[in-house]
């Protein structure tokens, strides 16, 4: 079975309009990617990394300068007619839409370009408008929507046509927490319930989004893929172990805590004035946490606060690039 998306040494160079306006930009630099059917794949990178450029090439809007890109085994450059039947794309921050049409009409019209039966399309539209909390807007003209509502409408447009492969370019860009969560939940549900039939390639510059949502993540910077793996495996690249911090009421006998299996390092500081002991554990094995908690209880202390710090994709990015995001 061919992969949903595959690129081979994909390169895209943008030339300045006039020579003197500066050097050409290598937006994609020999990108090799393989995304399997049924994956929820994330492309994580800062602004200007080349994410949008890649999605434009895959969705037949833009041609590569060199290298190859395949969608469902089809060459995006030559077989674009066939590619278009299988895909759709939505860009975040997209406020597009025919202002004179109603939300429902606008979505329905695009579904018709994909030959979706009218009754099925309308059912799907109402269902999604409901899930996105926009059912009351369905008969409103598109031009009366707020930017956030327009963006949600466009995300719906991507799903309404029921593509095999959906490209989402920063789908939650600038949306509030609730709207973002709704969209993420919907994406996840859509991919999962298809039983490996649907593929999503989404780009984001939100670390947490890539981490929580995606099966695999490719980290892109300056047109190059620096790493590509599951979020868990990526985080293993930065070998900082799990750190557990506990604030407890003053604990006199702490010896037992240092002997718990899985605890690699253990430090404590007492704040007698406030009756607090701060404990810090470096864990080789997270199963030690429950032993620590019961150890504290046996020692007669109460837990006031508990924090677990784990490596994030941000740490991975910093390690790979040598600088943080933005």
């Amino acid at each position: 079975m061919e992969p949903a998306v595959e690129t081979k040494k994909l390169t895209r160079v943008f030339n300045p309009k006039k020579k003197k306006e500066g050097a050409s930009v290598r937006a994609l630099n020999s990108v090799d990617l393989k995304i399997e059917k049924g994956e929820l794949f994330g492309l994580l990178g800062p602004n200007g990394a080349g994410k949008t450029t890649l999605l434009k090439i895959l969705s037949t809007l833009l041609l590569p300068t060199s290298g190859k890109a395949y969608v469902s085994g089809l060459d995006v450059e030559k077989d674009y007619v066939e590619v278009r039947k299988r895909i759709n794309m939505v860009s975040g921050g997209e406020i597009s839409g025919y202002g004179l049409l109603t939300v429902r009409e606008n979505l329905w019209m695009f579904s018709q370009f994909y030959g979706i039966k009218s009754s099925i399309a309308l059912e799907r539209i109402d269902d999604m408008l409901g899930k996105f909390g926009m059912l009351d807007k369905k008969s409103e003209k598109v031009r009366t929507l707020s930017t956030g509502q327009r963006q949600k409408m466009n995300v719906i447009r991507g799903f309404v046509t029921d593509p095999q492969i959906l490209f989402l370019d920063e789908p939650t860009l600038g949306l509030d927490v609730n709207a973002s969560r709704t969209i993420r939940d919907f994406i996840l549900d859509w991919v999962r319930k298809s039983e490996r039939d649907k593929t999503v390639l989404l780009t984001t510059h939100y670390m947490a989004e890539a981490d929580q949502l995606c099966d695999r993540v490719a980290i892109i910077d300056d047109g190059r893929i620096l790493a590509c793996d599951s979020p868990e495996n990526l985080k293993k690249l930065v070998k900082s172990e799990t750190t557990l911090r506990l604030d407890v009421t003053t604990m006199k006998d702490q010896r037992v805590l240092g002997t718990i299996p899985g605890v690699e390092k253990f430090t404590s500081t007492d704040d007698l004035e406030n009756n607090i002991t701060s404990l810090r554990f470096v864990l080789g094995d997270e199963s030690a946490i429950s032993d620590i908690v019961s150890g504290v209880a046996k020692g007669g202390s109460k837990i006031l606060a508990l924090r677990k710090t784990e490596p994030t994709l941000e740490d991975v990015f910093i390690k790979l690039v040598g600088k943080g995001f933005e």
Binding site: S59, T60, V81, N88, M89, S96, F113, Y114
Partner: peptide, 9 residues
């Protein structure tokens, strides 16, 4: 909307 129409099949 041009790009949306353009990439439609």
């Amino acid at each position: 909307t041009l790009k949306q129409v353009y990439i439609a099949p």
